[in-house]
Simulated scan of single mutants.
Amino acid sequence: MAPARMLLVEDDPMLRRFVRMALEALPLELLECDSVAPALQILAAQPVQLILTDLMLPGASGVDLLLHLQQHPALRGTAKVVVFSAGLTPETRLQLAPLQVWRLLEKPTPIAVLEQCVREALAVGDDSGGDSPPPAAAPASDRHVAIDQYFGGDAELFHLYRNTCMAQFPHDLAAGDRAANGHDLPTLRRVAHSLKTVLLTIDLPVLAAQARALESTCHTGAPDAAARDWPLLRAALADFVKNQGSAQY
């Protein structure tokens, strides 16, 4: 039997990597894109059984994607939709309620929760062996909180993901600089929105809080405040990258 097919709509390459890592053991074909237009092209070309989408995307939003699928049900077919977002406010949840969303996952989501959600959506069994004892846990003092919370205690997986983030951060800094210099608040907000999740996932809660504050500032449309908040976040993140993650925050 052919493996189930899943479409991931996520503009942040680090979070696409996170999803790939979470689902690599599952028998599924993972299709990826970074915005709504290519997602619709993929759906028009081949059916999928599951759509996992962010809400804040460049151009059309994830809500726009869901509205389009509601208006063109043949395009969606029988696919379940999971919204994977760090912006699940009460207002957003109300907006999503009539759009046939199967489940909501709030970023950052532990790998185990994401994997279990996809297993349930696709009715994929767990072949790991239910009678196998869990791996021995390392002493709590030897682990970051994020390794336990988001990676199920798997330090190797955490460091693999963290290395991906380290390679991506210079690109995020450049994107933030371009947006700040061009007074492009929507783009700067997307940069901050992605960073707040990624930074929390790799155990940098103070930087994540700075990114969250910048996102809020951009959302209110305050250019002076954004011009103040981006340099603060930029300096801290650049320092972290320069020191290869040795700085303590």
Rank of each mutant, 00 (worst) to 15 (best):
A97G: 06
A180G: 07
L94D: 10
R20C: 11
R20P: 01
S246V: 10
R190Y: 07
G62K: 02
Y161F: 15
L214Q: 02
F169T: 01
T89Y: 06
G182T: 03
V48C: 12
D172M: 09
A226R: 06
A44I: 06
V48Q: 10
P27S: 10
H171I: 00
I42K: 15
D148C: 04
I42Q: 14
F240V: 03
L40T: 06
L43F: 11
A140W: 01
P58W: 04
A247E: 05
Q244I: 05
L28M: 14
A123Y: 09
R178H: 09
R212S: 13
A79P: 15
A112F: 12
V124E: 11
D184W: 02
R228H: 11
R178Y: 08
G62Y: 05
T78C: 07
T89M: 00
L30R: 04
A45D: 13
L57A: 00
A74R: 14
G182Q: 11
R162M: 09
P110C: 03
D154F: 08
D148S: 13
A79M: 08
Q46K: 15
L31N: 05
P134N: 06
L232Q: 08
P139R: 06
G77T: 02
A167R: 12
I51Y: 08
A2Q: 14
E106C: 03
D184A: 02
P58R: 02
G153F: 01
Q49E: 11
E24C: 11
P3S: 13
L232A: 11
G153K: 00
V63K: 01
V206L: 12
F158G: 00
D11N: 15
R119G: 06
A121P: 13
D12L: 04
A74I: 03
R178Q: 15
D131M: 14
Q49I: 12
D154W: 09
D239P: 00
A236N: 15
G62L: 03
T220R: 14
H144Y: 10
L232G: 00
D224G: 05
Q71R: 15
P38C: 11
V19H: 00
P108C: 08
I111K: 14
Q168E: 14
Q95N: 00
L43V: 09
K242V: 07
H171D: 13
Y161M: 09
F18C: 08
L66P: 07
G129S: 09
L99I: 04
A22P: 07
E24H: 12
A86W: 08
G125W: 03
S61A: 08
D239T: 10
K242C: 13
V145W: 10
A146H: 07
V124P: 01
T53D: 02
V83A: 02
V82E: 01
H144G: 11
V145R: 11
D154C: 08
R103A: 13
R228K: 11
Q70S: 00
A60M: 08
M56L: 15
Q70W: 00
L173W: 05
D126S: 15
L188A: 08
D34N: 12
L214Y: 01
A45H: 12
T217A: 14
L15R: 07
C218L: 10
E106N: 09
A2K: 12
V113D: 09
V9Y: 02
Q49F: 12
V9H: 04
L7A: 11
V118G: 03
M1P: 10
Q71K: 15
A222W: 07
P231E: 00
A227N: 10
A137D: 07
G59E: 05
P108E: 04
R119D: 00
V9G: 01
E156Q: 15
D126M: 12
S85R: 06
